[in-house]
């Protein structure tokens, strides 16, 4: 059982991730709705995996990723509703496109935690 930190500012998207993790995995989900909050949670609760939305109120997931892994190292999954992100980011991080497919999310989390 792992602890996952999801950084996302859109409440319905937070609820969806909560439902996916709750129903399809045995992991614990922590939520943060900004980069600043995420850094605080990462330092205090040391999650095993970060899931970051690209579009955050105080920056973007791509620049937040190295800050969080610097605070506490863990694998990163990026989530975005922008299509171009697919080609630009997959080289460095695992990427999930919105709309999220629950099966795909569960599979990707499993793969990230295993790797």
């Amino acid at each position: 059982m792992a602890t996952i930190l999801y950084v996302e500012d859109h409440p319905p998207a937070q609820l969806l991730m909560q439902a996916i993790i709750g129903e399809m995995t045995t992991h614990t989900l922590l939520l943060a709705s900004s980069g600043a909050e995420a850094q605080q949670v990462a330092a205090e609760l040391r999650p095993d995996l970060y899931i970051l939305d690209l579009d955050l109120p105080d920056g973007d997931g791509l620049s937040l990723a190295p800050i969080l892994t610097g605070t506490h190292p863990a694998p990163v999954i990026l989530v975005s509703a922008y299509a171009e992100a697919v080609s630009e980011i997959t080289l460095d991080y695992i990427y999930l496109a919105k709309p999220l497919d629950p099966d795909n999310v569960a599979r990707t989390i499993k793969r990230s935690l295993a790797g």
Partner: peptide, 16 residues
């Protein structure tokens, strides 16, 4: 992008 954000919830919850 703005269309996809609500679509994420609609499709995600429907699939659950």
């Amino acid at each position: 992008h703005e269309l996809r954000t609500p679509l994420n919830s609609v499709l995600g919850f429907a699939k659950l």
